[in-house]
Design a protein around this nucleic acid. Sequence first.
DNA 1: CATGAATGAGATTTCATTCAT
DNA 2: GATGAATGAAATCTCATTCAT
Lengths: 207, 207, 207, 207
Amino acid sequence: MPAARSNVPRKLPRQERSRATVDTVLDAAAHILVNDGYEGFNTNRVAERAGVSIGSLYQYFPNKAALLTALRQRHAQEMSELVGARTHGAAQASLKQAIEQVVAGVIEAHRLHPRLHQVLEQEVPRQTQQASPTDWEAGLRLQLMGLLAQHREQLAVIDLSTTSLVLIRLVDALVHAALIPDPQGVPAAAIEGEISTVVWRYLTGRR
Amino acid sequence: MPAARSNVPRKLPRQERSRATVDTVLDAAAHILVNDGYEGFNTNRVAERAGVSIGSLYQYFPNKAALLTALRQRHAQEMSELVGARTHGAAQASLKQAIEQVVAGVIEAHRLHPRLHQVLEQEVPRQTQQASPTDWEAGLRLQLMGLLAQHREQLAVIDLSTTSLVLIRLVDALVHAALIPDPQGVPAAAIEGEISTVVWRYLTGRR
Amino acid sequence: MPAARSNVPRKLPRQERSRATVDTVLDAAAHILVNDGYEGFNTNRVAERAGVSIGSLYQYFPNKAALLTALRQRHAQEMSELVGARTHGAAQASLKQAIEQVVAGVIEAHRLHPRLHQVLEQEVPRQTQQASPTDWEAGLRLQLMGLLAQHREQLAVIDLSTTSLVLIRLVDALVHAALIPDPQGVPAAAIEGEISTVVWRYLTGRR
Amino acid sequence: MPAARSNVPRKLPRQERSRATVDTVLDAAAHILVNDGYEGFNTNRVAERAGVSIGSLYQYFPNKAALLTALRQRHAQEMSELVGARTHGAAQASLKQAIEQVVAGVIEAHRLHPRLHQVLEQEVPRQTQQASPTDWEAGLRLQLMGLLAQHREQLAVIDLSTTSLVLIRLVDALVHAALIPDPQGVPAAAIEGEISTVVWRYLTGRR
DNA sequence: CATGAATGAGATTTCATTCAT
DNA sequence: GATGAATGAAATCTCATTCAT
């Protein structure tokens, strides 16, 4: 009788009590991912850490994947909101300032829960092959295209769609590189400082 | 029951036969990762596909992680060799040509076993936190620093150590982006074409 | 929080409302058994489908078995009543006619809710070993003995008690055989048509 | 990675040892069904009773259903062989004798493992809706048609295909009725004695 | 009485690894 | 060395039932 395995949360919490349970469970899940990585993550431990019975966990998340999906969504939401807030003024700024604001925003967003972000991004297997549209970057990419269009005349690039994709992947990769200690000892700050430079030069072809 | 008579030499050179078994097992492991992803990967299946008993597999690889590590190493080796071969002449070339050669080499290396690369990179959990020194990029980074030093006077960057790290991460991220179909439809070729541009502009601050 | 004002009479006749709830729950239970079989049957789903809280369900049925027993009783009652109605005139008829009426009645009773009957009979585990006295056949068997006694002189059988049991089991088995598609393709109608013949010949020893 | 759920035994036992394991497990399964019914049946208990680890059980039976299917097959095989042996001479006998031999054979077959038979038949849910072709009756039905054809001229029935189905269901139902204690006290022997009579009269229309 | 959140024993199944042959 | 039968800890998930609100 199992309906097709789905990731939708099973039950919308109606009472106050149950909304609290959902959050508690998500917090526990995050805590375990952060401390033990995905290898230490299982539904029993999550429930135990949340101080909730395993049955309660399954009341709200029909399976393990749904729990992870919900956690990803909550995290993506947080990051998006922060980036959104930081880049609010970018529309009025010069291109250079806009770049610096956006890059700073993305860096700051990654500093919210760096380890959780890393685990979700690198260890937790994605259920579907391609990234889901709810990923935190989806919205950013649109914003970015708008921003680029505003400064069209300064740009040395041709297709804004390609450019925005390149920028997103590039900035994300470099921010992540800054999160991981480099075996050769390059400090995180050095990498972060370079990001705006890379972006500016790519976009304008100038120093 | 008398031991079955066989025509094959009773004692093949020991290391020869071992090497053959190891390769067979690694091939089977790769095949399963490529076709079923990490979720379909387990030691029993690998042994079965390799036509080897599970006991034999454990003769050569003390545990599952060792098997995956060996596979990663072999794959990194292959990629390194190809990049090395393609960038052999880069030392004599102009900076622009050198960039184009290296980028083309990296792209080509990723085309060797794209799906295996993707699975090893994104699905298979790493045992240690930081990237291991055997990763395919380690050698490339050294090469890169040498190459940059040769064209020092044309560069608009300051610290070559930082720069080489940034370049490695940046190129790798963009090559990977080209491997994954973009939801907004930007074609792989467009991304690949942009990589050299990004690198050139970042390094020189010129168009 | 003030109790919500409602227009419905605060106190419906207690038994009325109870009866309605009980029926709603039984309907839901039947619906689930019919559509998903016993494997899809659980108390939570029944309550949900009935639009009743799980707590309320347990007000009326102390456990799962009680729910199934009640459903069986209701179903048996329905079948019995229909058979009773159809065989009302059998007492005045000839033996041959009586047989035909009873057999037709039993067939018709099985056509009321064939799938529910099948599931209750074949999938739902019985709590006790022997058939319960509430089964629909209990009454029929008594009726039958009376009927046979009326035509005693035509009968080629010895013990009416044995005969009535044999007849009940026999007719039931053949009616059920007609409900299940035959792998060799014998149509249901052919089987049904044969039932009266079997009974008549058994009882009388004549064609 | 799960291949479509199937009931085929997972692995053909090659070594002596493993064939023994399979049998031990089936014996344990039968024992539990006989003593505790299907409600007491679970794979852990079966493995425990068999003195085998749960892992070993799953080496040979990919899931619970496969275990039950194998048990059913083994049981059907046993019954078929016994009926076959007992009805071997039926071909040479008169119709009356043949009927008595077959009926006696069927009764005897049910006496092999009556409780196991009952549980398999009534409690264990079937995975598919219709009876599987491996059921013990499939072969018997063919035999029966042959037998009937031999005595065609004595028969008062029309279509042998229908007749054989009716007979199988009828005999089976009555044999089962004899297995279950009757609440009204009709003894098993009385029922068994009546079976041949029912069959003879149905087939010939004579006493 | 009704609600529905919470419980948790228990069932199925997997798979890395061992070790007797 | 090679084999493959056996192991069993551990993970996911279900569902009958309880009880605080």
